[in-house]
Simulated scan of single mutants.
Amino acid sequence: MSVTYVVVTSLAAFMAGFSGASIFFRAGFVVDPLVEYGVPQSWWNLLGAAKVAGAAGLVAGLFLPVIGVLAAIGLVLYFAGAAITVLRARSFGHVQWPLIYMAPAAASLFLL
């Protein structure tokens, strides 16, 4: 396991965990766009839990790589879905955000 993998995976875990916690704490910069995109409020806790679980899986993957691979795949799929949601809402100025969060998760897959 390389130092680069540990750094990138730790960054991906931090970003996903931060994003998930931001939903739980109802941070305006996260939940205001969710309202704009038409995401039902009843989904918000599940979406936050998915991000936090992905972050925990990435950290666990530093010790048990198969869990990290599965968590990274899950986060890539999650953020791909988020990008699609943004595009469907025609909020083209926001599409970079899910892609920025997806990038380190995807990179961790290639560095393993």
Results as ranks from 00 to 15, higher is better:
residue 84 I to V: 15
residue 110 F to S: 02
residue 36 E to C: 00
residue 56 A to Y: 08
residue 30 V to E: 07
residue 111 L to W: 12
residue 38 G to N: 14
residue 14 F to Y: 14
residue 7 V to A: 14
residue 30 V to R: 07
residue 112 L to F: 14
residue 100 I to Q: 10
residue 73 I to T: 01
residue 59 V to F: 09
residue 45 N to Y: 14
residue 44 W to E: 10
residue 38 G to K: 07
residue 80 A to I: 10
residue 29 F to A: 07
residue 102 M to T: 09
residue 37 Y to W: 14
residue 106 A to W: 07
residue 15 M to P: 00
residue 8 V to L: 03
residue 112 L to P: 00
residue 85 T to W: 03
residue 30 V to S: 07
residue 66 V to P: 01
residue 35 V to N: 07
residue 85 T to C: 10
residue 49 A to H: 08
residue 46 L to G: 15
residue 24 F to R: 11
residue 107 A to R: 04
residue 11 L to C: 08
residue 32 D to F: 05
residue 67 I to W: 09
residue 106 A to D: 06
residue 51 K to S: 01
residue 23 I to R: 13
residue 40 P to W: 10
residue 34 L to R: 05
residue 70 L to H: 07
residue 68 G to F: 00
residue 92 F to T: 12
residue 30 V to A: 02
residue 63 F to N: 00
residue 56 A to S: 03
residue 40 P to G: 07
residue 4 T to A: 15
residue 27 A to F: 08
residue 16 A to P: 02
residue 10 S to H: 06
residue 67 I to Y: 11
residue 57 G to R: 01
residue 64 L to P: 00
residue 26 R to V: 09
residue 110 F to D: 13
residue 10 S to R: 06
residue 75 L to W: 05
residue 76 V to R: 08
residue 46 L to R: 11
residue 57 G to M: 01
residue 85 T to S: 10
residue 106 A to K: 03
residue 76 V to E: 11
residue 43 W to R: 12
residue 38 G to D: 08
residue 104 P to D: 10
residue 18 F to R: 14
residue 2 S to C: 06
residue 53 A to R: 02
residue 100 I to F: 13
residue 109 L to F: 01
residue 93 G to A: 14
residue 55 A to Q: 02
residue 103 A to E: 11
residue 37 Y to D: 04
residue 51 K to C: 00
residue 18 F to G: 07
residue 20 G to I: 02
residue 60 A to S: 05
residue 107 A to S: 12
residue 33 P to A: 13
residue 10 S to M: 06
residue 98 P to G: 04
residue 55 A to M: 06
residue 59 V to Y: 05
residue 8 V to M: 02
residue 78 Y to K: 04
residue 72 A to Q: 01
residue 56 A to D: 02
residue 32 D to G: 03
residue 14 F to G: 04
residue 109 L to I: 11
residue 68 G to K: 03
residue 81 G to Y: 11
residue 79 F to V: 04
residue 100 I to N: 11
residue 48 G to E: 06
residue 13 A to C: 03
residue 101 Y to T: 09
residue 75 L to T: 07
residue 110 F to Y: 15
residue 42 S to I: 13
residue 47 L to F: 14
residue 82 A to W: 04
residue 112 L to I: 11
residue 101 Y to E: 14
residue 3 V to I: 13
residue 45 N to P: 03
residue 28 G to F: 09
residue 80 A to H: 08
residue 56 A to H: 06
residue 5 Y to Q: 13
residue 69 V to P: 00
residue 73 I to E: 02
residue 38 G to A: 04
residue 40 P to M: 02
residue 111 L to T: 02
residue 56 A to P: 00
residue 19 S to L: 03
residue 103 A to C: 12
residue 31 V to G: 12
residue 90 R to Q: 15
residue 112 L to T: 12
